[in-house]
């Protein structure tokens, strides 16, 4: 899923400082799972903004709505009535949701309440870690199911750099070296010889470097 984190409260409050009425829009997709922008977080943010503004003597009216997904036009359409008479929409979705609302309501001021961080998963209650670099050409079959593109700080494809020591990455003792993990796993699987094979330069055009990407499933289009 996409993992996001709420922006500092003061930053969000600043985005809507000149508004009198706002729609605070949550999303029940990934950001609800990572506790950043679900129904609960949406209501907390709305209440906090209202209280903050009341203390400033400039009361703010809030409307809340939590979409099933903000990354699907039909669910963004569903908030049309609420969007109509607000000065701004504060979206608690990932960057996709914010853009979907902005696209659907071109004359509306739409601001992000979250920082979209990474594609990852939960490793313990309340803890999430990055796992996928969205590079567009998966190589996990060559690396024992551990992604060096995103889990190695330098995206190395041919083994660990000289900064890998005691299983940790040179950037921090809290970051495991992806290549140590790959090595250990390939060793356990009896496939170490795979790591001797030279991996040629990656085709980054399939990643974000190739410009905005698009996926089409012909059979699914109408």
């Amino acid at each position: 899923m996409i993992v996001a984190e709420q922006k500092p409260f003061a930053e969000i409050a600043g985005f809507v400082a000149d508004c009198n009425k706002i729609l605070v829009a949550g999303c029940l997709g990934c950001v609800a799972v990572c506790l950043a922008g679900g129904e609960k977080e949406t209501e907390i943010l709305a209440a906090a903004l209202r209280m903050h503004r009341r203390l400033q003597g400039k009361p703010l009216e809030t409307v809340t709505y939590t979409a099933t997904r903000q990354c699907d036009p039909e669910y963004v359409d569903a908030m049309a009535d609420l969007v109509k008479d607000v000065d701004a929409v504060v979206s608690l979705a990932c960057g996709v949701g914010v853009q979907y609302i902005a696209e659907r309501y071109p004359d509306k001021w739409v601001v992000p309440a979250l920082n979209t961080r990474f594609a990852g998963g939960s490793v313990a209650q309340g803890v999430w870690e990055e796992r996928c670099g969205l590079c567009g050409e998966c190589i996990l079959h060559k690396t024992g199911g551990i992604c060096p593109i995103i889990r190695c700080s330098k995206s190395l494809l041919n083994g660990p750099c000289g900064g890998s020591q005691y299983g940790k990455c040179e950037i921090s003792k809290d970051v495991p070296c992806a290549w140590q993990l790959i090595y250990d796993r390939m060793k356990a699987l009896g496939r170490l010889e795979w790591l001797l094979e030279y991996q040629p330069p990656k085709d980054w055009s399939k990643s974000r470097d190739g410009g905005p990407r698009k996926a089409v499933r012909e059979d699914a289009t109408i």
Binding site: S164, C177, W179
Partner: peptide, 15 residues
């Protein structure tokens, strides 16, 4: 030679 995994260092040199 002082980085880890130690056994892999020679393999990497060979690469």
């Amino acid at each position: 030679p002082f980085a880890d995994p130690f056994e892999f260092r020679v393999v990497r040199l060979e690469k």
